[in-house]
Amino acid sequence: MEQAMLLAKERQLVVPGEVLAKGFEWLPSAGCYRANNEIRAKQLGLVRIKERFIGVIPLAGVYVPRPGDGVIGVVNDIQPTFWIVDINSPYDSILQLGEAVGEYVDTTKTDISVYYDIGDVIYAKVMAVSRSKSVQLTMNDYRAKKLIGGRLMHITPSKVPRLIGREGSMIELIKNKTGCQIIVGQNGVVWLKGEKEALAAKAVLTIEAEAHTEGLTDRITKLLEEGV
């Protein structure tokens, strides 16, 4: 039997098919798969090693909902007892009346669009995802709310952690320098509101473009200070 061997380094850039480790001591997590005794990347991205688990953080790709994610969505249809919400994903999501409104609603008398109408922007939590990716949202979360006014932007969902930064450092930096309100959904949708929206938007796009590079915080600080 072949000896167990780790071939990839933390944060190494890998392409799909690249062998990251050999042997059964290592386990594949997201972005990887096992082929016999090898663990290989299945997406272009950066290697992440955590104990025995090897994963790849992809540099591109669409958003696939996971329970617990905070997402920003737009209401795109209303049914008698639920809303259909576009969450920037191949999968639409459903927000049931009971998960959205904390009071009794007589649906024979009330059109539920008084709560959320088509085009409304919401920050919601993913409550459940079925195996075939039917998605349920909930507003029963202290962060969940309707977002009024402001501007929506999109970034690659896998780059969300970079935009937020270590313990929220990057997003706090942008908030402080621009005075904007900013909410970042795990689905890569960003909501901005404030006087300096354009500058904040520029910073967000720069982070998106350079997410995989070193020294990003310094460059963003410079960009924001020059823009003031």
């Binding site: 392409v15 799909p16 098919g17 972005g31 798969y33 082929a35 290989r40 299945k42 997406q43 272009l44 991205g45 992809p58 540099l59 591109a60 790709g61 669409v62 690659t156 896998s158």
Partner: peptide
């Protein structure tokens, strides 16, 4: 496909 982040076994 790789650029799109679609998971593939290999190129």
């Amino acid at each position: 496909l790789a650029d799109a982040g679609v998971p593939i076994r290999d190129l």
